[in-house]
Amino acid sequence: MTEKHSLKYPVLSDKDLVFAHKLGIVWEQPAAMRGIFSASGTDQLKRTGRDTLELPVPATMLVGKDGLVKNIWADPDYTTRLEPTAAITWIDEVNRSDGN
């Protein structure tokens, strides 16, 4: 992601859902979904990197230079995401509180 979009900041990922499990933002799809995925030709392992029906709740976190989570947004409705302007406001607030 960082290379693809020439980002100037690190993008963290949690491929194995270790952090998501610690945060309690993982849910498991019903077992019936395996049949639906199979019938539609969806390879769960290829799609998620895991052969599990677990998915994280969509979340955005701002992690400070000190490694602490400064703000978090999560919504179980996967069709909603944090507005980019809200993320920019978070960054501005953290920068002001850090004296930058």
Rank of each mutant, 00 (worst) to 15 (best):
E3H: 02
K4D: 12
K8N: 14
Y9H: 14
L12G: 12
D16V: 04
F19C: 05
K22W: 02
V26S: 11
W27H: 09
E28T: 15
Q29I: 05
A32N: 07
M33T: 13
M33P: 05
G35L: 05
F37M: 12
S38C: 06
A39C: 03
G41Q: 03
D43I: 04
Q44S: 08
R47F: 02
T48H: 04
G49H: 01
G49Q: 02
D51Q: 13
L53T: 12
E54A: 06
L55Y: 13
P56D: 13
P58L: 10
P58G: 14
V63G: 05
K65P: 10
K65N: 13
D66N: 10
L68K: 15
N71P: 04
N71D: 11
I72H: 05
I72E: 11
I72Y: 02
D75P: 00
P76W: 00
P76T: 00
D77L: 10
Y78A: 10
T79G: 01
T80Y: 08
R81W: 04
E83K: 09
E83F: 04
P84E: 08
A86S: 10
A86W: 01
A87W: 04
I88T: 10
I88W: 03
T89H: 00
W90L: 04
W90H: 08
I91V: 15
I91D: 03
I91L: 08
D92F: 00
N95S: 12
R96E: 04
D98C: 03
N100A: 09
